[in-house]
Design a protein around this nucleic acid. Structure first.
Length: 482
RNA sequence: GGCCCUAUGGUCAAGUGGUCUAAGACAUCGCCCUUUCACGGCGGUAACCCGAGUUCGAACCUCGGUAGGGUCACCA
């Protein structure tokens, strides 16, 4: 009795994959995994106009990177193929004709002009069922005469269509509110509505998981299942992800696009983790979860009914948590490409830079700007030497920088400990507080008010030669501008 | 406009009639730690859309309003 759960993700290859899309796929995946079911990828590419080259490959790539792997799809035949809609074109017409025989659909010969004339004051037109009751002889005659036609759904009259949505509960729509929509276009190809129902049935989909834009048209789909005598699937509709209170996340606006986030230095697992949380909350309120943990915790009860606003700030935070949770080696490997960008071929200690960065960035993409001081050193604004709490001004700074320069010039062992000891002793000899020296030295070494580490760490990173050169440069700069 | 859906802090959200003088997280603010920036720790500000009902009792149930979203194509 219990059928194996089969869910599907059916993107249309019209560009990149945005976060909302991906979440729909993720939930379908989690639901299938949670129920030991099968997750299917289907490509809905019937829209020739909007089709984008390479978009199919991008779907594969995105799912792979995101860790959402399908059991069946164009590249993994499970016996229910083809999984690409344009390769299934032959089958829809015969099903549409069969539905006419079964009394669930009818031929319609109305032309566009007539349809236009049906518009009401709001520009909305509802088909008046003009051809619904043509007698079969006339239909046959006109078909044989080669008149163009479409096949329309014959919506039962005077009934209420109901279904139980897994997240929204009971949805019911009166049949008088449902139009006799077109199933098969005059070019012989199916409309999305029809192709979708036929495909879902033929592929044995048990749970249809998709956005709420289909919530109110689902009764219409159910009528098709009913007319065929097919078992209706269970539905799970997902509220939309918004850009702000009134706008859905859109492809055109901003970058709610998976690959863009990857390019900005987000970790795939952090993105996936974050979007899972948009519209779903596990029973125990956990936030940071692996795919396995999400699968385990996934539960329809925790899916919210209302839309949620995408918040990159929180996703950044989550990404930072992933970064901090990495081992030193893992972080080093992940950060290296970004460090190389900042280092620009110079001989800095990558591992040292990586360990400096690990707790200081939320996304890898911040690394180059944080390390800009390595290559962007030159004349800088001397006002950053003014520090009242530390009792430092330009003249104090000059003394401090000279002190540091002198103390360090003869230091052999350029390690953190000895640099520190050397600077502290130098400060003592010169009668200054070590904090004053450290502060001045840090600014002198980097030319930046904010740096990813203290004076000692900066000195280690820059190395002896560069450090001394910069201290000398800063001393001169200060002297000239006193 | 018809129909469908939704409504807890700035954001994500817990909450399914009493334990709500409403969790937790992000953001924000303050303090501690600290030679800077972070990390970490501690604490603060901040919400049940409005109005009627039902009930001894309502964020939770019902109805109405308001606001927002979706949908009404020979697009998917």
């Amino acid at each position: 009795m219990n059928r194996t759960v089969r869910t599907r993700f059916a993107p249309s290859p019209t560009g990149f994959m945005h976060i909302g899309n991906l979440r729909t796929g993720l939930y379908a995946y989690l639901f299938a995994r949670k129920n030991k079911g099968v997750f299917i990828l289907r490509i809905e590419d019937t829209d020739r106009e909007r089709k984008v080259d390479g978009a199919v490959e991008m779907v594969y790539r995105t799912l792979k990177i995101a860790g959402i792997d399908h059991d069946e799809g164009p590249d993994k035949d499970g016996g229910y193929g083809p999984y690409v809609q344009t390769e299934r074109m032959g089958i829809y017409k015969q099903y549409a004709e069969k539905l006419v025989e079964l009394g669930g659909a009818y031929y319609c010969f109305c032309d566009k002009e007539r349809l236009e004339s049906l518009k009401d004051g709001n520009g909305v037109h509802t088909y008046d069922k003009h051809c619904r009751n043509l007698d079969s002889a006339e239909v046959r005659r006109r078909l044989e005469a080669g008149e163009p036609y479409v096949i329309r759904q014959k919506v039962p009259e005077g009934t209420v269509s109901e279904y139980e949505d897994l997240v929204f509960g009971r949805i019911s729509v009166e049949s008088s509110d449902i139009e006799d929509g077109i199933l098969l276009k005059s070019d012989g190809l199916p409309t999305y509505n029809f192709a979708n129902v036929v495909d879902d049935h033929l592929m044995g989909i048990t749970h249809v998981i998709r956005g709420t834009e289909y919530l109110s048209s689902t009764p219409k789909y159910n009528m098709i299942y009913d007319a065929f005598g097919w078992e209706r699937p269970t539905y799970m509709h997902l509220p939309p992800i918004m850009k702000d209170a009134t706008r859905k996340l859109s492809k055109r606006f901003g970058d709610a696009n998976f690959e863009d986030f990857i390019a900005k230095g987000y970790l795939p697992e952090a993105i996936v983790n974050y979007i899972a949380l948009l519209g779903w909350c596990p029973k125990d309120n956990r936030e940071k979860m692996t795919m396995e943990e999400m699968t385990e915790a996934f539960d329809v009860d925790g899916i919210s009914h209302s839309s949620s606003i995408f918040d990159e700030t929180k996703m950044r935070w989550l990404n930072g948590e992933y970064l901090k949770a990495m081992s030193k080696e893992e972080f080093y490997n992940a950060a290296l490409p970004w460090i190389e960008k900042a280092v620009d071929g110079k001989n800095y200690d990558r591992a040292e830079l990586a360990s400096l960065m690990q707790t200081r960035v939320d996304i890898l993409g911040e690394i180059p700007e944080k390390l800009a001081f390595l290559n962007g050193y030159g004349e800088y604004d001397l006002s950053m030497y003014e520090h009242r709490k530390m009792k430092v001004d330009k003249s104090v700074a000059l003394a401090a920088v000279r002190l540091a320069e002198e103390a360090l010039s003869s230091l052999e062992d350029w390690s953190e400990d000895s640099i520190k000891e050397c600077v502290v002793q130098g400060a003592e000899r010169g009668g200054m507080k070590s904090g004053q020296v450290m502060f001045s030295m840090r600014v002198a070494l980097t030319g930046e008010p904010v740096t990813p580490g203290g004076a000692i760490e900066m000195a280690v990173v820059l190395g002896k030669e560069e450090s001394l050169a910069r201290l000398a440069f800063s001393a001169q700069l200060l002297e000239r501008n006193l």
